[in-house]
């Protein structure tokens, strides 16, 4: 038997609004999501909430890699979070939720939280 999970997608912004290596924040039904864009049309979405500082700011972090793993560094105290898994690289027991992102006809869509 297969279970299919019904996803609902919310259109957020045109792709041009997020240059490569930049991040933006989106408000989805009261939940803050940080969306990142990497070269090769790779898109990621994490919670915008930085659990290490308690501020909603991850979208304003610097995007890069740690040993090849794409990460964003929190702008407050610089902890790094893996874009794919939400795992914090600098604190084992810390992670943030991740969300699905896709691009449809030039529009960035995020899975509704």
């Amino acid at each position: 038997m297969t279970t299919s999970i019904e996803r609902t997608w919310t259109a957020v912004c045109p792709v041009e609004a997020v240059p490569e290596y930049a991040g933006v924040a989106a408000l989805l039904d009261g939940v803050q999501v940080a969306i990142f864009h990497l070269p090769g049309d790779r898109w990621y979405a994490l919670s915008n909430w930085d659990p290490c500082s308690g501020a909603a700011v991850l979208s304003r972090g610097i995007v890069g890699d740690a040993g090849g793993v794409p990460v964003v560094a929190s702008p407050v105290y610089k902890e790094r979070f893996a874009l794919e898994s939400g795992q914090c690289l600098d604190a084992e027991d810390v992670s943030v939720p991740v969300y699905e992102v896709r691009v449809r006809e030039g529009v960035v869509e995020v899975e509704s939280p």
């Binding site: 490569e20 930049a22 308690g54 501020a55 909603a56 700011v57 304003r60």
Partner: peptide, 21 residues
């Protein structure tokens, strides 16, 4: 251009980030 994505948040928003964002 690309320089925007290189800046620490303070330089990116030309202001100093505070504890609450």
């Amino acid at each position: 251009g690309e320089q925007m994505t290189l800046q620490d948040t303070n330089d990116r928003y030309l202001a100093n980030l505070q504890r609450n964002g």
